[in-house]
């Protein structure tokens, strides 16, 4: 087998493709930012955070989350599995695994209707926090958000409760 030839051709094709790919991505209006951080959904406006009711769940960033918790007594809901919750969660958060939503229905019904509820997961691409927020919104909770950047972002600078 002409291994050397196969290798050379493979390497040259890959190098040329890499150069063309980067050139295209540089001039293309649909370019993707080459970065290690997954883009996070844009967070809510101040007006949305002060509203009595929303059109749908909104996204909050870390600072908005902390403010909602300290100033408005927001309830944090960790939508991950119990073992993930036990390994470390945002202080004060309760655990309602999205997979077990039905089993927690009594807990959910008992949550105050006028409180902010904020779901979260590890961060993109995990969308359990978003799914949690959507479920809660459909159940009639009016002020629902999710912390899209999630646990990955929280861990980077804040205290974790075990």
């Amino acid at each position: 087998m002409p291994i050397k030839k196969i290798l050379i051709e493979t390497v040259v094709i890959t190098v040329v493709a890499t150069l063309l790919g980067f050139a295209n991505n540089f001039i293309n209006p649909n370019r993707v930012a080459i970065t290690a951080m997954r883009p996070v959904a844009p967070s809510a406006s101040d007006a949305e955070l002060e509203a009595d009711s929303l059109q749908g769940p909104v996204v909050v960033d870390r600072e908005q989350l902390k403010k909602l918790v300290s100033e408005q007594g927001a309830i944090l809901i960790d939508a991950r599995l119990p073992e993930e919750y036990d390994a470390g969660h945002i202080p004060g958060a309760i655990n309602i695994p999205i997979e077990l939503f039905g089993e927690f229905i009594d807990t959910i019904e008992a949550l105050p209707r006028d409180a902010w509820l904020i779901g979260y997961c590890d961060g993109p691409p995990c969308d359990k926090g978003k799914n949690m927020a959507e479920e809660l919104f459909y159940m009639g909770f009016m002020r629902v958000a999710y912390y899209d950047a999630g646990m990955d972002d929280w861990k980077s600078s804040e205290e974790v409760q075990r």
């Binding site: 094709i13 890959t14 040329v16 493709a17 890499t18 063309l20 790919g21 295209n24 991505n25």
Partner: peptide, 9 residues
């Protein structure tokens, strides 16, 4: 960025 160009080539 790169894979589509490998496919094309």
């Amino acid at each position: 960025v790169v894979l589509p160009w490998i496919e094309l080539i």
